[in-house]
Simulated scan of single mutants.
Amino acid sequence: MKKHRDILIIEDDEDDREILQEIFRDLGYKNKLVFFHDGVEALDYLRRPEVEPFIVISDINMPKLGGFELRELILQEEIFMDKDIPYVFISNAQDEQSVRQANKLSIQDYIHKGSDYNSYKERIKNLIDYWRENINSFTSSGK
C-alpha cells in the first residue's frame, strides 16, 4: 500500500531534521524517513523510476537547489507525472509572498515550523493522517 511507503524529507538544517525525526518517532508512524540535505540530492533520488514515496516534505530555503526551484523542476519533468506524490512545504517563512509562491506550485500543504513543538507535531500528524486516509482515493481516480 502506498501509505506505508517512505516519507522523503528535504531539510538542510540538522536541528530541524532532528525535530522531525522526534515528531515522527512520537507519532509512531512506521514509514521509513529518508532525509536529503538539499534539492539536488532529492531530485536525483526521485528521478529513479522505482522510487514512489508516500509524501515529500520539503523546506523552502536550502543551498544548491531551493524548495521552490525543486518543485518547479518536478512539475516540468515527465517522469513525475504518473507518480502521484503529495508535495508539502515546511518553512519558518510565513510571509504572504512565500505562501503565494508555494501555492502557485500546486503543493498540497504549507506548514509553518514555528517554535512550539506540540503545535508543529499536531500539524505534521494532521498532514500524514489526511494523506493516509485519502491517498488511495486520489490515486485511483487519476488525480
Results as ranks from 00 to 15, higher is better:
R5E: 10
F80W: 02
N126D: 06
N103P: 00
S58M: 12
N103W: 14
I10M: 08
E14L: 12
E69A: 04
G67F: 06
D44Y: 13
M62P: 03
M1A: 05
K64H: 14
E69H: 06
L27G: 09
I90G: 03
Y130C: 04
K2T: 00
I55Y: 13
G66Y: 02
I23V: 15
M62I: 04
I128K: 02
R25C: 10
E77C: 00
I60F: 03
F24W: 08
I57C: 01
D13N: 15
Y117K: 05
P86S: 12
M1Q: 04
I135M: 10
L43P: 05
Q101G: 01
N134F: 10
Y117P: 08
R5Q: 05
E14G: 00
S58D: 06
I90A: 03
S91I: 04
N61L: 15
K30D: 07
R100M: 11
R25Y: 14
V51G: 10
I85S: 03
F138Y: 15
I19W: 07
K2W: 07
Q108W: 09
V99K: 11
I23R: 10
D82R: 13
K30P: 04
Q94H: 09
L33E: 04
A42N: 00
G114F: 02
L27V: 11
H37E: 12
L33T: 02
R100K: 15
Q97S: 11
Y120D: 02
I57K: 00
H37Q: 09
